[in-house]
Simulated scan of single mutants.
Amino acid sequence: MKVTLARHGGLAAAIHLRRPPTVVDTDALPESAAAELAGLVAAAVPGTAGEEGAGPGRARDAMSYTVTVEEGGRSTELTQSDTTMSPEFAALLSWLEKHSAAQ
């Protein structure tokens, strides 16, 4: 499974334009970390948790995040923002930011 995190907008929007997306590939992770990531992704998918179809909200300085999950030839895109983020998506986002530097 390959998980990509892209950030959009926010107060530091200009900085994020030059920053490449965060990419985490489970093939490069220890088995326990790959399983943890798979569980976080499953929890964050709309319909299993969070608000389905939540838009970016109305905060002008809010960041929005797009997580793309590629697995088995399928691609799933999850998008949430600072103002509408579910706890499950926040946990996934935090994990990705923490573990992307380790790769």
Results as ranks from 00 to 15, higher is better:
2 K>Q: 01
2 K>G: 03
3 V>Y: 12
3 V>F: 11
3 V>A: 02
4 T>M: 15
5 L>S: 04
6 A>H: 10
7 R>C: 03
9 G>Y: 09
11 L>Q: 09
12 A>D: 13
15 I>P: 08
15 I>A: 08
17 L>G: 03
20 P>G: 00
21 P>G: 00
22 T>D: 07
24 V>F: 11
24 V>G: 05
28 A>K: 14
28 A>D: 15
30 P>V: 04
30 P>Q: 10
30 P>E: 04
31 E>F: 14
32 S>V: 10
32 S>M: 09
34 A>E: 05
34 A>L: 02
34 A>D: 03
37 L>F: 13
38 A>W: 13
44 A>I: 00
44 A>M: 08
45 V>D: 03
46 P>K: 07
48 T>K: 13
50 G>N: 12
50 G>H: 14
51 E>K: 14
52 E>Y: 10
52 E>Q: 12
52 E>W: 11
53 G>F: 10
54 A>F: 11
55 G>R: 07
56 P>H: 03
56 P>D: 05
57 G>S: 04
58 R>P: 10
58 R>C: 05
58 R>K: 14
58 R>G: 09
59 A>K: 12
59 A>R: 14
60 R>K: 15
61 D>S: 05
62 A>K: 08
63 M>E: 05
63 M>K: 13
63 M>L: 15
64 S>F: 02
65 Y>N: 04
65 Y>S: 01
66 T>D: 00
67 V>S: 01
67 V>M: 03
68 T>M: 06
70 E>W: 11
71 E>S: 06
71 E>T: 04
72 G>T: 03
72 G>R: 11
73 G>A: 07
73 G>E: 05
73 G>D: 01
74 R>H: 03
74 R>G: 01
75 S>T: 10
75 S>D: 06
79 T>I: 02
81 S>F: 05
82 D>Q: 12
83 T>W: 13
86 S>L: 00
89 F>V: 01
90 A>S: 10
92 L>S: 08
92 L>R: 13
92 L>K: 14
94 S>N: 10
96 L>H: 10
96 L>C: 06
96 L>G: 00
100 S>G: 13
102 A>K: 15
103 Q>H: 12
103 Q>K: 11
103 Q>R: 12
